[in-house]
Design a binder for these strands. Structure first.
Lengths: 349, 349
DNA sequence: TTATCCTTATAAACCGTTTTAGTAACCTTT
DNA sequence: AAAGGTTACTAAAACGGTTTATAAGGATAA
């Protein structure tokens, strides 16, 4: 393996100092009084031999790494992996690489990851925060790191964030169920006080309140063991037979919930209406297809990266916390259209 | 932000040379003749203050980065993102970080990524190779980098690889359709000469040949525009009305294929049987549920990382190319069981 | 003429490690 | 007692950049 050419090789070849080259490479030619002649000579030569500076030497000297650390609940979840992909694409164009990891929504794991990222000296942190890491995020902010949280936020910390309108979306979804004649609408959500979950529940309750409807919220402690989750939901539905519609607060709860419904042989949407927060690629292909709240993946990714790049290029202006609230779209499908001509879906060409 | 403590601070505090500390930290105490006393003193102190060496200084000096570059077709595809997650977990325990990127199966993008990774001096490359990068991989191998390919391989390169038994799996799936009474089985696959696609087709053809059945393979040029793909498959099915079963060669082809079938109002499994290569979290919840070839995600990730770590710790022994061929499981569900009692799923409570 | 100021460029210090090449001190051996 | 061998440790070079401090030479001003 041939050794990589270094800035010193170039200095030798061109018979000039490496300082001059470094200045030119960093766009400081004007500022440092390098003649246009030199600049052009250097740039053409570098272009010709395809020189790329050693990023570790750079990072060592400057303390900057052009790397962003991203931690989400589960990087294999389609929602997060899609966002990750979009972010990476944008960041790449700006010369940044992203390091991903999954927190599994585990406080300790998240703390460890922050430590790991600090150790790797990432320039910025993009976090879908698990509960209990308020303090660690505060420390990052005190140490002047660029931090953006998304998908959810934590009470008591002032940090730039990108969220979807969980409250409004849930309100709208619940309203939709009501308008379609469902009388006893339940919500199945996590037993968690994370902001996005709270907001989803509040939106749901608000819609019910407005119509003077009783609500029934079931909170499940999500286990890795699907069978247990399914059984739990099944029992809930079984012991509340008046329920005629369910709002599942996340994609993976819906996964178990739909299996519970199937096990109970309840017909969707006749016996029970179904809405899910967060769409899945395949929901449209279900029979009946599943109504879902669609989050604007691309928009979320764009906004997060945009905030991050602002913070990175502008280390000072931390003052006003920027909060971006994005709307979702309620994609109405068959699972909530009880009175609809059921055949429509089969009359399509 | 308080400055990080360096090895020099420790040397000063302890009144010894930083060389000694470095030796101890790198487990060379014995080899370099450092007394047990010193060693313990150093280790306890370091533990106490929680010192972590600067990874960039380390990388600069050693040329090693403890980083693995991974490039797959699409990191937001559940198959790849699940593998990525498993890999990361294992690699993390061994002190490695993984950098991910999507090639979009684009030759140029893959070349660029290899360049980027070289620039970031990753120690090893894990690649699901797009066509046309044989040469680039060869160069990596010549330059003594650790390389493992998975999911597919490329003709003419000798590189450690982890694959599933595409041929055998497709053979078995096709056989299964035949055994369940399907007479005219079509395959919908990509118009691509990638190894995994070829093998899947060969397995399918072999099964048909054995029974003297005609086969009908449709190759689609996969577009980002779902509507076009769907239309194409629809037309194929329409102009080959004798087809009574379809084998979809990938997850995302099935996505479009299922929509085509739905649009044509063909009943699964009565009018048409369906098998998909690669399972989806939700296939089991479809009505009818979809028979799929399940790839051993965890096992793939484990084997790939295992090979990679062997290569990294053993830079010499490149000689015998290691090929790992993993079996899949055919998960039989309703979409291929034509004679099954169909009513079960609709016998409502 | 000399002091001053630009313009252009560079030598050397620095970032925080690892590794090479020693060196002192002490112990054997002949 | 001189030569050789261990043992225990370290000074300094190296990695490849960026940044700071400084210098050389010509133009301008006094």
């Amino acid at each position: 393996m041939k050794k990589k050419t270094t800035i010193i090789d170039i200095a030798r070849d061109l018979g000039i100092s490496k300082t001059t080259i470094s200045f030119v490479l960093n766009g400081k030619a004007r500022e440092k009084g390098i003649s246009q002649n030199q600049e052009i000579k250097i740039l053409t030569y570098i272009e010709k031999i395809g020189y790329k500076p050693n990023v570790f030497a750079q990072s060592l000297r400057t303390g900057k790494t052009k790397t962003i650390g991203m931690m989400v609940e589960d990087i294999s979840d389609p929602f997060f992996s899609s966002i990750a992909r979009s972010m990476e694409e944008i960041a790449y164009k700006r010369g940044y690489k992203i390091l991903y990891s999954s927190t599994e929504n585990d406080t300790q794991k998240a703390k460890d990851l922050i430590q790991l990222y600090r150790n790797r000296q990432v320039d910025g942190y993009i976090i879908a925060p698990p509960p209990g890491i308020e303090h660690d995020i505060k420390v990052l902010l005190e140490d002047k790191f660029a931090v953006v949280v998304f998908d959810r936020t934590l009470p008591g910390i002032e940090v730039d964030n990108v969220l979807v309108n969980n409250y409004q979306s849930s309100y709208q979804a619940t309203k939709h169920l009501i308008e379609n004649g469902y009388l006893n609408i339940a919500m199945v959500t996590l037993d968690s006080d994370q902001s996005q979950m709270m907001d989803r529940q509040l939106g749901y309750e608000k819609a019910l309140d407005e119509c003077d409807r009783p609500g029934r919220v079931m909170k499940i402690i999500y286990r890795d063991n699907d069978v247990d989750n399914i059984k739990e939901i099944q029992e809930f539905l079984n012991s509340n037979t008046e329920i005629d519609a369910v709002f599942f607060a996340t994609n993976y709860i819906a996964d178990n919930g739909l299996e519970a419904i199937r096990n109970l042989k309840l017909g969707i949407p006749q016996n029970i209406g179904v809405v899910v927060f967060d769409d899945d690629r395949l929901f449209r292909l279900f029979s009946p297809s599943i109504t879902a709240i669609v989050q604007p993946i691309k928009e979320i990714a764009e906004q997060v990266i945009k905030l991050m790049l602002i913070l990175l290029s502008n280390p000072a202006s931390k003052k006003p916390v920027r909060s971006i609230l994005l709307p979702t779209v309620l994609k109405v499908r068959e699972s909530t259209l009880r009175n609809q001509e059921k055949e429509t879906r089969h009359t399509l060409k």
